[in-house]
Simulated scan of single mutants.
Amino acid sequence: MKAVRWVLVSAAFVLAGCEAATPKAAPPSSSAAPTPTPTASSSSAAASAQQDPARFAKQVVTRAREAGVEPQLVMAILYNESYKPHDPELERAWQKLKPDAAFGVANMHKAAFEESRKGRPFAGREWQELPDDPDLAIQAAAWYLHDLAAQLPAARSGHSTGDLLAVGYNAGPSTMKAVAGGTKPGAQVQTYLDTLHDNWAKAGKAVAS
């Protein structure tokens, strides 16, 4: 899912922030000091903090180690996927318009979830639970990366393992194998990798804290 599809959703959040920033007149008979009204910048900062994947650092480390993958990679992917507001109601509303939309803080599609849960501790869980359960979303993403790693060819191009797994997460196993074999990433995949590299340092800081 591309970020442009969430322009309207983001606009709604901005409008909500602006409403919150509008001062309310105190009652004429009130002698109490007026309650400070949140500013647009403070509302924006609060919304940004609510979207920051670093708040899931503990779950990321636990689930990544459980699946045998690098916590920094899992966190960097969460940063990559944080371009849209991960709100259960908004995600479900969007899914009604676009049935193949992804769910949860890791933006996982149903097919990937169904594959990753087989024989795993969360085998009894459902894809529809992802928007309400960030820990489940992170757990499923970590195991999906584990499964992608098992599909990597022994002989690979100059890309790092982390980059190839990110390609697989974004574009699927077939594209991952093609890039591993030397095929140049397409524009969308390359953008995903560039974003991953931009997020790498803060992802490492998040899981190290």
Rank of each mutant, 00 (worst) to 15 (best):
A201Y: 09
A25L: 14
Y192R: 01
E115I: 01
V14Y: 01
P53T: 08
L164Y: 02
C18D: 04
Y192I: 06
A45H: 04
G186C: 06
A46P: 03
Q95L: 11
V4G: 08
A16W: 14
Q95H: 15
T161G: 07
T191D: 11
Q128P: 02
S31M: 12
P53A: 12
G17P: 07
V14L: 13
P34E: 06
V7N: 11
E19I: 09
E115T: 06
G186S: 04
E70S: 12
M108A: 07
E129H: 10
H109K: 15
A180H: 05
P28F: 13
T22Q: 15
T62C: 03
R65E: 14
A54N: 03
A3Q: 10
L90C: 05
L196C: 03
P28I: 14
H86T: 11
K96R: 15
S30I: 05
V7C: 08
S43T: 09
V7H: 11
L152P: 08
T183G: 08
M1K: 08
W200P: 02
A180E: 06
P131L: 11
Q51L: 13
L15Y: 07
I138H: 10
K2I: 13
Y169M: 01
L152A: 06
A93K: 04
A45Y: 08
R63H: 15
P38A: 01
V60Y: 05
R156T: 08
D133G: 02
L165Y: 00
